[in-house]
Amino acid sequence: MSAIFPKWTNKLPLMVAIGGLLTAGAVTAGVWYYFTPKYFRVGYQPIQPVAFSHATHSGQLGMDCRYCHNMVEKSWFSNIPSASTCMNCHNQVLKDDPRLALVRESAASGKPIPWVQIHRVPDFVYFNHAVHVNRGISCVECHGRIDQMEEVYHAKPLSMSFCLDCHNNPAAKVRPADKITDLGWTPSPDPAIAAQKQAQDGKKFVHDFRVESLNNCSACHR
């Protein structure tokens, strides 16, 4: 028989098994690692038409998010400011700077600046900013440290499991109503005490703001 099947073929089943396992393992690992919004959304940072920096305006100048995104507490949609909002300051600050040419042009002509949208849930999902912001959920939970970003990038996956992680246990995230736009806020500088305080205060806020744990499908798919 050895003339038909050379000796090494004795190991063939083992090789096939190892090869198959390796391939299957690699494909599974690849799909698990890559086929998720944590990979294909997080880190998205399009080139914006104007080099606007949140790190300068919110971080260094300490402007409140609502100065520009003023509809965030009233509407499902958090507006991008019009060029006239920028001109409140930039009619004096960097008045002739070339980096702001598009802003001046837009303010004069009324033609909007073509900002590229970064965060966007699918159209079959209902999302609402006002509900979250008025119930003690800070921008940082869903957008990351915007006030440290030179250019905004997608910091959180905004997948369904991301939303549900919080909806199942909002007490872990709610904070005082006046600290919503203070992205660096923690209950205490010491992480151990902060966790303890959050556990206590969270329950109180959930009660005071009358927060429900919304995880029925029709809350978000309506």
Binding site: Y39, G43, F124
Partner: peptide, 20 residues
Amino acid sequence: KRGDITRNSPIQIFPDMKRQ
């Protein structure tokens, strides 16, 4: 790896009814 900064818009693996 996950979280790398990219200029490309996110890939839609199954577009389904994501954009209507």
